[in-house]
Simulated scan of single mutants.
Amino acid sequence: MTDVIRRKIDRARPTQAEGAPGADRGWRLALARAARDAMGLDLEFRSLVVARQSLAEVLEQAPDLALIALLDGPGGGLGVIMLAPVVTASFIEKQTLGRLGSQVPPPRKASRIDAAMVAGVIDRALMGLDETLAEEADFSWAGGFRYASYLEDARPLGLLLEEDAYRVLSAEISLGGEGRLGRVLLVLPANGRGEVPVVPETEAKSDAPPFTAALSAQVMQADSRLDAVVGRLTLSLRQVMSLEVGETLVLQTAALNDISLETIDGQRIAGARLGQHRGMRAVKLNEAAAARTGSSSARLAPSAEPVPPELRAAG
């Protein structure tokens, strides 16, 4: 009696599954990308309906001569994917011949070899579905499924699947732009047993007042310049004005393993040594904490050369 009541409740629910937009979009992207990446086959969705159905309704939807694959899911849950004959034939043809013929192959019953050849595409599509739903609530019922085994027909499903509600993603697809149309049914337990993804808290949920948060965001984006100083040399204005192209300036205390990382006003922040990273100049810090010293300690003593009379007269 309980099963009868449950079925009536399931039929009374809306055909659109709870949270369906996430699974709808995710399955479209995942199956199309799997066909493209695994075989170079163009696959387009003509329609996709997400419905909540009982096991009896699921068994009635199985396409004739469909390839039926059982799927393992989280918590021991079982799902099913059904491929219409034209879909299976197109997958096999593309993998074996590298192209689709001008004529659609006649329908035939799928074999175990056919299932083995399309298992990789099915798993790739299911993994793609996991990725697209990684941060969505639909992952709890649509994520974590993988290919398990092949069934010769739909009759064993009545014994293998639990007498429960299922979410059915029924898609009408076209293949290879050749006018080949077929159905793909993805059947998963409605009451998901997977974990609900934990979405990290965003900065918008900060306890800081809006103005403070906005101001902080602007300040944190401001540039902060640091100079890597190899050595310093003090010259008089006369010496600077007399410099010529090709002249060499000797840095008496320069050392590649003793670089001073300083602010624009000469304040030392840390010590470092010169090196390379991916072909670019780089410095590696030698000190774990900033050494807050005055700018004068990082500079060399001024030259002992007397100041020219004309400069002294100018003040």
Rank of each mutant, 00 (worst) to 15 (best):
A84I: 01
D227S: 13
R25T: 09
D114E: 09
T253I: 06
L185K: 06
E244D: 11
R108E: 13
Q267T: 11
R7G: 10
E172L: 10
L159A: 07
G192R: 04
T293C: 06
L161H: 01
Y150I: 01
V80I: 13
M241T: 07
G143K: 07
D164Q: 12
I122A: 02
G194V: 01
D10F: 02
T202E: 13
L70N: 09
Q218M: 11
A34H: 00
P210V: 03
D114F: 00
R25Y: 06
I9V: 12
G294H: 10
T263D: 09
K94C: 01
S297Q: 14
P74F: 02
V80Y: 00
S236R: 15
A165S: 15
P200V: 08
V80L: 13
E163W: 03
Y150D: 10
A171M: 05
N286P: 06
M82L: 11
G40F: 03
T293R: 07
P209D: 15
D223E: 12
T88P: 00
L129N: 01
Q239I: 02
D123M: 01
S90A: 13
L59D: 02
R28F: 03
A298S: 15
N191A: 15
A30W: 00
P106W: 00
G79E: 00
D130W: 02
V199R: 14
M39E: 02
V199E: 14
V58W: 03
Q267I: 11
A204H: 08
A270E: 07
I173P: 01
A217H: 10
A32G: 04
A214F: 06
A290Q: 14
T253F: 08
Q16M: 06
E310N: 12
G231N: 10
L71M: 04
A301R: 14
M1D: 11
S47A: 15
S236M: 14
V86G: 10
M82T: 02
Q95Y: 04
A301C: 11
Q218A: 12
E163F: 03
G294P: 12
F211W: 13
A313P: 12
R167V: 10
A84C: 06
Q16L: 07
L175R: 02
G279K: 05
A51Q: 12
L129Y: 01
A38N: 12
E247V: 07
R25E: 11
A137S: 10
I259L: 12
G231E: 13
A69L: 00
L237C: 05
P156V: 06
R281L: 14
M127H: 12
A125T: 02
L55S: 04
R232K: 08
G177F: 10
E44Q: 09
A66F: 03
F139L: 05
L285K: 01
Q276P: 03
I68Y: 01
L97F: 05
V245A: 11
L159N: 08
V87Q: 00
V198Y: 09
G315N: 09
S102V: 04
G120V: 00
S102H: 03
I68F: 00
E201T: 13
L126S: 00
G246Q: 14
G98R: 03
Q276E: 10
G22A: 15
R278T: 08
A222L: 15
A20M: 09
P308Y: 12
L133W: 05
L185S: 05
